[in-house]
């Protein structure tokens, strides 16, 4: 008999819990496996290996001329310009500009280079400034494309490529003897 009352209370309590409008949800959890993705690429850079060097030349006092250095370092003279050597000596330095490009293996990249730059000179006699000379027809040759002229390169399996840049130096008639220097800046970016 005494058990009936507590049982009844329990039943009433249970009924009260069921009837409660403030429903307390039991703890329910769920997990999702998301992901983060990123591609970190080794930086690309170009290092100058050697300068575009036109060597030593003579100019005519009456006829303008030019020297063209191709990507293989072969010099071609025209007009009043002529080598100041006979196949050796100062002429040995003639070379295209060369750059080593390094970055992530097998990635393609773009080369940006000017087509024309200006060389400023310092007079041999007296050390004053000489008249600027124009260097144009700058052409970019890439080893990854068998030396052809292009602005799109491909890094090899070691992440390297080489760039050669040739150009033409125009020498006006009567150009004073001087040392000429120009800055050739290129930019490489992944494409």
């Amino acid at each position: 008999m005494r058990d009936l009352v507590p049982a009844a209370y329990a039943a009433a309590l249970a009924a009260t819990l069921i009837a409660s409008p403030a429903l307390a949800a039991s703890v329910q959890s769920a997990t999702a496996q998301g992901q983060v993705a990123a591609v970190i690429v080794e930086p690309i850079m170009a290092v100058a290996l050697n300068d575009l060097d036109f060597g030593s030349l003579t100019s005519s006092s009456t006829t303008s001329g030019s020297i063209t250095v191709d990507s293989l370092g072969v010099a071609t003279y025209s007009g009043g310009a002529a080598p100041a050597c006979a196949g050796g000596g100062a002429c040995a330095g003639i070379a295209p500009a060369r750059f080593l490009v390094s970055g992530e293996a097998s990635r393609s990249y773009m080369v940006s280079a000017p087509t024309q730059i200006v060389a400023s000179g310092t007079l041999i006699a007296g050390g004053g400034s000489a008249r600027d000379l124009s260097i144009d027809e700058l052409s970019v040759h890439l080893d990854s494309h068998a030396g052809s002229i292009t602005s799109i390169g491909q890094l090899d399996e070691k992440g390297e490529d080489r760039i050669a840049i040739g150009g033409r130096l125009t020498v006006p008639a009567g150009t004073a003897p001087a040392h000429y220097r120009a800055t050739l800046t290129i930019m490489v970016t992944y494409s």
Binding site: Q33, V36, V41, E42
Partner: peptide, 8 residues
């Protein structure tokens, strides 16, 4: 470089 794939 690296291709990162991180669980989240």
């Amino acid at each position: 470089g690296a291709d990162l794939a991180i669980p989240l």
